[in-house]
Amino acid sequence: MSSPKSASQSASLAAQSFGHRHLLGIEPLKPHEITAILDLADSYADLNRGPEKHSDALAGLTQINMFFENSTRTQASLEIAGKRLGADVMNMAMQASSIKKGETLIDTAMTPNAMHPDLLVVRHPHSGAVDLLAQKVNCAVLNAGDGRHEHPTQALLDALTIRRAKGRLHRLNIAICGDVAHSRVARSNLILLGKMENRIRLIGPPTLVPSQFAEFGAEIYDDMREGLKDVDVVMMLRLQKERMDGGFIPSEREYYHRYGLDADKLALAKPDAIVMHPGPMNRGVEIDGTLADDINRSVIQEQVEMGVAVRMAVLDLLAQNLRKSRADAAAAAG
């Protein structure tokens, strides 16, 4: 079950039901495509736990990680995912380079594009920037987070973590708590979990959970204790201090008192409810440190592990579609 062979078999099965050139967001995905990615990621999770963490799915391909915004974990996760699949991986830290010299995004992106990469992984501080870039380059683009818009691999890894912990990914009560307004993680999760037919509650102060999110079919609570009642999953979000240009909350201590997750508040959720956090955590601001480390409740480490598996699955699928479209183009050219 945990041999590389099973991963490659499920990979070709999954590719048949995943028909996208890029992965720019969860929005264009259909439920069966989400399931296909998660199934493939499951087999990569097995591979990653085995003795030989290697496959040749991406052998001969070049993956460039372009990060216009600081990232440690996502970049490391994507780098290791690419390397375990045999790709040549290069990291470009963009915030330090040409952007400061006044070069436009398109020009900056055309430089690595001219080096013929096959997979371009991009993170950018502005919503829609990765979409724009995907229109201009001729390789597969994976969105590693654009502004407040989407962060699709995070939502997929969260979904995989939930499915493994709960045994299913539908008809669950899921609470997403905290800074929803500034969070691309919240948006992608809201879309994904909604597509898979779960009940979603958004919990936080109204300055951070704007009322228009109700139109996505979520229930909005500004009282955390009420919102956490009988939920199966508690997803905490990081308070994004760097994206706040005005006072959204009076102080961190008041925020922790009203919206920080501690054992007391968690007791209102179902007894087997799991606690999630996309990281990095502000301990003592949105989550109690002891709770975050409680292996009986917290699946935060599992999320990091599943991150690699999900990204391997996505890279594998994008690469398969890329190879297929190139083969089709070559056949058409005679």
Binding site: G128, H149, R184, R187, E215
Partner: peptide, 16 residues
Amino acid sequence: AGAAATSGKFAALRGL
């Protein structure tokens, strides 16, 4: 200041 869209479902979905 800094707004690129009108607040509502569309702006929330696009993260603008």
